[in-house]
Amino acid sequence: MTITRQPEWNAKEAAALIAPIVASESGPVLLCLQAVQAYYGHVYSDAIALIADACNVSRADVHGVFTFYADLRETPPPAVPVRLCAAEACQAVGARTLKAEWSAACEASPELATLTGVDEPIFCLGNCALGPAAMVDGELIGRADVARLCQAIDAAQAQERPL
């Protein structure tokens, strides 16, 4: 089950999305990529050439920026992204165990894996006194365990709204 929340690619629409950024900002490439991703959920490959033309830089330049930043993705995000903090403060309170337990839960349930995506580690969510920290669909979870993650996923799904 894949819930598509983001609109389909439309070059004209995308060009209109980035035009005001290019007009008003110095060094607009990253801002354009972020704007495209915010709207479409990921950066369609067509966007690279579009942004390159609009910003008067090479496609290689835009591609280089795109591939540098971990946030920028080339595929649609899962319906309810789950990110587990993998940094030291959370390691000190069982982040490695939580990751193993979460991976096992996803292996046991392909639906859960598809819904939440394979966890891409994230380094620090700024909740270092209440670890292990996790982010479920953009919501921060403190003292996370598998049960709390599942609760948060249910809550996020209950809030899912059609476009």
Binding site: G27, L30, L31, G64, F68, Y69, D71, L72, I122, F123
Partner: peptide, 20 residues
């Protein structure tokens, strides 16, 4: 955009200028 090294001040400037 999810890059730790951009906390280094000159990398931050590059990022603010829209580059890697």
């Amino acid at each position: 955009a999810g890059s730790y090294v951009c906390g280094e001040e000159t990398a931050m400037l590059e990022s603010l200028e829209g580059r890697r």
